[in-house]
Design a binder for these strands. Structure first.
Length: 436
DNA sequence: TCTGGGGTCCTAGGACCC
DNA sequence: TCTGGGGTCCTAGGACCC
């Protein structure tokens, strides 16, 4: 049996952990640059606010309904996610962290009552971290996803759904929209509807050969999993990434090369950090730059440049050098740029890179410098030491006008609890003071 | 004024190898 | 009528996930 544990409205729930006054109120979290709605509380969903909606289009609506709006605070969400995962690890020998807010637990070998076990997981996470979760339990990962979906949607399930009997599974699949099945996206849904397939149960009745032909082996695997045959294994260690991308929209449109160079240097530095964290080097790099495609009346320009590096590297200094050189080659004056990014590819393990005969870089020295840089920044905070071309900040940086404090990761943001004189008279033992 | 960011897997077809 | 057999690597495009 597998359990899928999924945090409810995760980003919103993170914001509420330290703001209990927001419980029962509509709350939303915005994407980077305060662009789109990416997380909604139940109350916000009930108001009809849609996922992915651009915030500026519904600004007046949000105001009118007194919706609490937050910029995304990934430092906070990442930290709370770690804490949730650590707690989940106590309930299984095999934990797969599937995303920032989801994990699979392998329950094989446990002889427990599934419903009770799921309940205790739920209550423990709630008590330790303050985040509500939904739990689906079933014999395969895809079925666990189905169960999780039901746990979330059906209030009668109260956050837990166990599909452990063939009869229960069949009954669930007969009611289950095929488009909600994990791995079946918009295109396949369209295709299936055209073939008269509307529920997960209908899908199970299809011929294997048809599924294989029209939906590749991926579709076939989903079908087997729905039939209760486990094809997807637990992935206990995240495999190293094959490509790493760092890209951002600018806080404001940019026209000059200098600020864009700072941005691209910063993105390259982030890519280098990510490479070093997984102990690998990149052999190729792509830099891209484009204008705002939504502004159709303005001249549009989009270009990218791929370059092969002489020797695979994860040195911030070297990656910045190539990235800014590539940028100079694709930058054209006379456009209003919205976004740029750096992608590193052809990634190989650090200890297995192919040298070059005429390489004149002192790679050992770079590696030593990077180790120091990482150690200092880990201790004193990101970018305590950085390469000068990254700049000291500018209008290209993200707009984050409604950022919450980093309650759990920054000394100055930790909540202060102060006892007030005469508190008892006011029947108010403690008062929580919000940091600015 | 204003529209996110970061990934994976699979297939088909072409070029090439012995 | 028929044309050898067995491979790899790379790319572009399409699907999906959070």
């Amino acid at each position: 049996m597998f359990a899928l544990v999924d945090c409810n409205n995760f980003y919103v729930s993170c914001e509420r952990v330290f703001r209990p006054d927001l419980n029962g109120r509509p709350v939303v979290v915005l994407s980077n640059n305060d662009g789109c709605i990416i997380s909604r509380s139940e109350e916000a969903k009930q108001l009809g606010i849609k996922m992915g909606e651009p915030a500026f289009k519904i600004a007046a609506f949000l105001d009118r309904h007194q919706v609490a709006v937050f910029s995304s605070n990934y430092v906070l969400y990442g930290d709370l996610s770690h804490r949730v995962m650590r707690t989940l690890g106590q309930f299984t020998p095999e934990l797969e962290v599937y995303s920032i807010d989801e994990a699979f637990l392998n329950l094989a070998g446990l002889s427990v009552d599934w419903v009770e076990y799921a309940w205790s997981i739920r209550q423990t996470v709630r008590r330790h971290i303050g985040i509500p979760v939904s739990i689906g339990v079933a014999p395969t990962k895809v079925l666990a996803k189905v169960a999780n979906y039901l746990a979330k949607k059906d209030p009668a399930q109260a956050g837990v759904c166990v599909l452990d009997q063939p009869g229960k599974i069949t009954a669930a699949l007969k009611e289950f929209d095929v488009g909600e099945v994990w791995g079946i996206g918009r295109q396949y849904t369209k295709l299936l509807h055209a073939s008269g397939v509307y529920t997960a149960w209908d899908f199970l009745q299809l011929d294997d050969a048809w599924v294989r032909k029209n939906m590749t082996v991926v579709g076939l695997r989903i079908k087997k999993e729905l039939a209760g045959i486990a094809c997807l294994e637990m992935e206990l260690l995240p495999p190293p990434k094959k490509a790493i991308c760092t890209s951002r929209s600018f806080g404001e449109d940019q026209t000059e090369l200098a600020p864009i160079t700072e941005a691209v240097a910063t993105y390259a530095a982030r890519c280098a950090e990510k490479l070093r964290r997984q102990r690998s080097c990149a052999g190729m790099m792509m830099v891209f730059l484009h204008t705002n495609r939504f502004k159709q009346h303005e001249p549009q320009y989009a270009r990218n440049l791929v370059c092969k590096l002489p020797v695979p590297t994860n040195s911030t200094i070297e990656l910045i050098r190539y990235a800014t050189a590539a940028l100079r080659m694709i930058y054209r004056k006379g456009y209003r740029y919205k976004k740029a990014g750096v992608i590193v590819m052809a990634i190989e393990p650090e200890e297995r890179i192919q040298g070059a005969l005429f390489d004149r870089m002192d790679r050992a020295k770079h590696a030593a410098v990077m180790r120091s840089l990482d150690a200092i920044n880990a201790k004193y905070g990101r970018d305590t030491i950085k390469v000068a071309s990254q700049g000291l900040g500018g209008k290209w940086r993200l707009r984050q006008e409604r950022l919450s404090p980093c309650y759990t990761t920054r000394w100055s943001d930790i909540i202060k609890v102060a006892a007030h004189a005469g508190a008892c008279a006011h029947n108010e033992m403690i008062k929580i003071k919000k940091p600015q």
